[in-house]
Amino acid sequence: KFNKERVIAIGEIMRLPNLNSLQVVAFINSLRDDPSQSANLLAEAKKLNDAQAP
Protein backbone atom coordinates (compact mmCIF):
# COMPACT_ATOMS: atom_id res chain seq x y z
CA LYS A 1 0.00 0.00 0.00
CA PHE A 2 2.64 2.52 1.02
CA ASN A 3 4.76 1.83 -2.06
CA LYS A 4 1.91 2.74 -4.41
CA GLU A 5 1.12 5.88 -2.39
CA ARG A 6 4.80 6.82 -2.42
CA VAL A 7 5.06 6.46 -6.20
CA ILE A 8 1.95 8.59 -6.70
CA ALA A 9 3.21 11.23 -4.25
CA ILE A 10 6.62 11.39 -5.95
CA GLY A 11 4.96 11.91 -9.33
CA GLU A 12 2.77 14.69 -7.99
CA ILE A 13 5.63 16.41 -6.17
CA MET A 14 7.76 16.36 -9.32
CA ARG A 15 4.99 18.20 -11.19
CA LEU A 16 4.60 21.03 -8.66
CA PRO A 17 5.79 24.07 -10.61
CA ASN A 18 6.86 26.35 -7.76
CA LEU A 19 9.25 24.01 -5.96
CA ASN A 20 12.94 24.23 -6.75
CA SER A 21 15.01 21.13 -7.41
CA LEU A 22 16.46 21.03 -3.89
CA GLN A 23 12.98 21.09 -2.38
CA VAL A 24 11.80 18.31 -4.70
CA VAL A 25 14.81 16.16 -3.79
CA ALA A 26 14.25 16.78 -0.07
CA PHE A 27 10.59 15.71 -0.28
CA ILE A 28 11.49 12.61 -2.32
CA ASN A 29 14.21 11.64 0.17
CA SER A 30 11.71 12.03 3.01
CA LEU A 31 9.28 9.77 1.15
CA ARG A 32 12.00 7.15 0.76
CA ASP A 33 12.83 7.37 4.47
CA ASP A 34 9.21 6.96 5.59
CA PRO A 35 6.74 5.89 2.88
CA SER A 36 3.93 5.78 5.47
CA GLN A 37 4.02 9.59 5.51
CA SER A 38 3.27 9.94 1.79
CA ALA A 39 -0.03 11.76 2.25
CA ASN A 40 1.40 14.15 4.85
CA LEU A 41 4.51 14.92 2.81
CA LEU A 42 2.47 15.49 -0.34
CA ALA A 43 0.22 17.90 1.56
CA GLU A 44 3.28 19.79 2.86
CA ALA A 45 4.78 19.95 -0.64
CA LYS A 46 1.52 21.35 -2.02
CA LYS A 47 1.39 23.98 0.76
CA LEU A 48 4.96 25.04 0.02
CA ASN A 49 4.22 25.09 -3.71
CA ASP A 50 1.22 27.37 -3.12
CA ALA A 51 3.19 29.63 -0.77
CA GLN A 52 5.93 30.08 -3.38
CA ALA A 53 3.54 30.86 -6.23
CA PRO A 54 4.46 34.04 -8.07
Rank of each mutant, 00 (worst) to 15 (best):
N18K: 01
I28K: 03
A26K: 10
E5G: 04
L41T: 09
S30Y: 09
S38C: 06
R32V: 15
L48P: 00
N49E: 01
Q23N: 02
A53I: 06
L16G: 01
E12Y: 13
N3K: 03
A53N: 13
A45K: 00
R6I: 15
S36P: 02
S36K: 07
A26N: 11
A43I: 12
V7L: 14
K4P: 15
I8P: 04
E12G: 06
A43C: 06
D50E: 13
I10M: 12
Q37D: 08
A26Y: 10
S36G: 07
L31Y: 03
Q23H: 02
N3H: 14
D33T: 14
K1H: 14
D50G: 08
L31T: 02
I28S: 02
N3L: 04
M14P: 01
F2K: 10
K46A: 05
Q37T: 05
Q52L: 06
N40E: 11
L42G: 01
I13Q: 01
L48G: 00
K4N: 04
M14A: 04
K4Q: 15
D34M: 08
K46D: 02
N20G: 06
N29A: 13
I13A: 01
L19W: 00
N40H: 15
I8F: 12
N49C: 01
F27I: 05
A39W: 14
L31F: 04
N29H: 06
K46W: 06
V25N: 08
A45S: 02
R6V: 15
K1Q: 15
A39S: 11
N40L: 12
P35H: 05
N40P: 07
A53V: 09
V7I: 12
S38M: 15
A43H: 09
R15F: 03
L22S: 14
Q37F: 07
K1P: 14
V24E: 01
L31C: 03
N18W: 12
I10N: 02
A45I: 02
L19R: 00
N40T: 13
P17R: 08
P54D: 05
L41G: 01
A43K: 10
F2V: 10
E44P: 01
R15L: 10
R32P: 04
L31E: 01
S36V: 06
K4A: 10
P17C: 10
L48C: 05
D34Y: 09
K1S: 15
D34S: 11
P17L: 07
Q37S: 05
P54I: 11
L41N: 02
I8Q: 11
S38H: 15
L19I: 04
Q37E: 08
D33F: 13
D34W: 08
E5D: 15
L19Y: 00
L48I: 08
A39D: 06
L22I: 10
N18M: 03
A51S: 11
R32T: 15
S30Q: 14
R15Y: 04
V7K: 14
A51M: 12
R32E: 15
D50I: 10
I28E: 03
R15E: 05
S38G: 05
P35S: 07
L48N: 02
I8E: 14
L16I: 01
A26W: 09
S30C: 07
V7F: 14
V7H: 08
I13G: 00
V25I: 14
D33G: 06
P54N: 11
L42Y: 03
L41C: 06
S38V: 15
K1W: 12
L19C: 01
I10L: 08
A26V: 12
Q37M: 13
D50H: 09
A51E: 10
E44H: 08
S21K: 14
I13Y: 02
D50T: 10
F2T: 09
S21T: 15
I8V: 09
A45W: 02
E44W: 11
I10S: 03
A39G: 11
P54A: 13
P35K: 04
A45M: 02
Q37Y: 05
G11H: 07
D50S: 05
Q52M: 11
Q37P: 03
D33V: 12
A39T: 12
D33P: 02
G11Y: 14
S38Q: 07
P54M: 13
A39E: 09
M14Q: 08
G11W: 14
D33M: 11
E44S: 09
P17D: 05
D34F: 07
N3Q: 06
S36L: 08
R15C: 07
F27D: 00
N18D: 02
K4S: 15
N3S: 04
E5Q: 09
P17I: 06
V7R: 15
K46G: 03
R15Q: 11
L16K: 00
R32N: 15
M14Y: 07
L16D: 00
M14G: 05
L31H: 01
A43R: 10
N20Y: 06
Q23M: 03
L42M: 06
L31N: 00
K1F: 10
K46L: 08
A51H: 07
E12W: 05
I13P: 00
K47M: 07
L42H: 02
Q52V: 04
V24G: 01
E44F: 12
E44I: 11
K4R: 06
Q37C: 05
S36C: 08
N18L: 02
S21Q: 10
M14W: 04
S21L: 14
E12V: 13
I8H: 12
M14S: 06
R6D: 15
A45D: 00
I10E: 15
F27W: 02
K46E: 04
E12F: 15
E12D: 09
A26G: 07
F2S: 09
A9V: 10
L41M: 10
N40R: 12
K47I: 12
L48K: 04
P54W: 09
S38W: 15
A43P: 01
A51C: 06
S30M: 14
K4H: 11
A51K: 13
S38N: 15
N20I: 05
S21F: 13
I8D: 05
K46R: 11
Q23S: 02
V24Y: 04
Q52Y: 05
S21C: 13
A9Q: 03
P54T: 10
L48W: 05
E12N: 08
L22H: 14
A43S: 13
I13E: 01
S36H: 13
I13T: 01
P35N: 06
I28V: 06
M14R: 08
N3P: 03
N20S: 12
A45L: 02
P35M: 09
A26M: 07
K47R: 11
K46V: 07
A43E: 09
A51I: 12
M14D: 01
P35D: 05
L31M: 07
N18C: 04
I28M: 10
L42W: 04
L22A: 10
L31R: 00
F27L: 05
S30R: 14
N3R: 03
L42K: 03
K1V: 04
Q52R: 05
N20V: 06
L31I: 13
N3W: 15
F27H: 00
F27Q: 00
R32H: 13
G11A: 14
A51P: 01
L48S: 02
K46C: 05
A26C: 13
F27E: 00
Q52F: 05
V25R: 11
M14V: 06
Q23P: 00
Q52S: 04
N40K: 15
A39K: 15
P17H: 07
A26S: 13
S38D: 04
A51Y: 11
L41H: 04
N20D: 12
I10T: 05
N20E: 03
I13V: 03
K47Y: 07
K1M: 12
A53L: 08
R6K: 14
V24W: 02
V24D: 00
I8C: 12
A26F: 08
D33R: 12
V24R: 03
L16R: 00
N29P: 00
S30H: 13
D34K: 10
E44M: 13
N49D: 05
N49A: 03
E12R: 09
